[in-house]
Design a binder for these strands. Structure first.
Lengths: 159, 159
DNA sequence: TATTGTTATACTCTATAACTATA
DNA sequence: TATAGTTATAGAGTATAACAATA
């Protein structure tokens, strides 16, 4: 587990040498990039009084109206965890449970209009933050990075 | 509520068209890659009955013997959060608190030998997992990805 | 007065197990 | 029996506020 100290807002010392692109290596580079992105998404979420998990749930619900079990599966959680997640969002009027027309045991989870609005805003902000991370790369570098990230994800990865 | 992170005004190219297709690739690609890496690190941590945060703490303690406040700062946490973190690790014999020789208010947090052993193992495993994510890229692509990730991180930390 | 660390409190997130109501 | 969802419970992780000891 690489160290990956996240960006500290209180860091007193500005970088003395601005442009010294040291290669951290694949593992450390990706790990640190991952934490940087995670931190950025956390800020976006916090700006709307949400957690990262809530934000991911909103991402899932943008395109779907899943049942609780399916929602949990999308997020990699147990169904009981999804219950609380949806409870808290529902209390704030961001999502809604509706009875499924086909199965009386099941519910359909959907974003409310307010939830959709928030999801749209957060999507834009997340894009800005992530884009800012790559702001000083050239256009070509950004394109390459985008391509390589997609390529890595496309592979038969998981262990 | 006190979210004072406005979008970077220095962004040179605001999206002229409503739906900027070029950026969506970058943003989604990096976001998903970030989650994939996070998940991989989570598996490594879980394999040792640790959380990702504990794993990061171990990374910090590999090179340092910080005080509680400094440890918290490295992890981006409040000092009160670090108390519990260290408590739980100490109960398992993985870290140790020692009185600071210079400041009687302060303690020094250090890995025990068992903690060091675990940190070494986890480092190796994390490397393997991240490598597996990029296993089907060519050597050149991996090198590029490594370089681009480092370059992105080297830049002026945004937001 | 300021700083270091802990405690008290409250909340989110998470899983396991047990429960209900369907199927 | 099997599945969908909830509840009960327990624990980690987090922050804020208040506190004690020390600087």
């Amino acid at each position: 587990m690489p160290h990956t100290t996240p960006p500290r807002p209180s860091d007193p010392e500005p970088p003395a040498t601005p442009t010294a692109p040291t290669d951290l290596g694949l593992v450390d580079g990706l790990a640190q990039l991952s934490f940087a992105i995670h931190a950025a998404l956390g800020k976006v979420a916090a700006g709307h009084d949400l957690s990262i998990v809530q934000l991911r749930m909103f991402g899932v619900l943008r395109d779907r109206e899943p049942g609780m079990q399916e929602l949990a599966r999308h997020l990699g959680l147990d169904k009981s965890s999804a219950t609380g997640l949806v409870d808290r969002a529902e209390r704030r009027g961001l999502v809604r449970r509706s009875p499924s027309p086909h199965d009386r045991r099941s519910v359909q989870v959907a974003l409310t209009e307010q939830g959709h609005q928030l999801a749209r805003e957060a999507t834009v902000e997340a894009g800005q933050h992530i884009h800012a991370l790559a702001a000083h790369l050239t256009d070509e570098q950004r394109a390459q990075l985008s391509l390589l990230a997609s390529a890595a994800l496309a592979g038969p990865a998981p262990s």
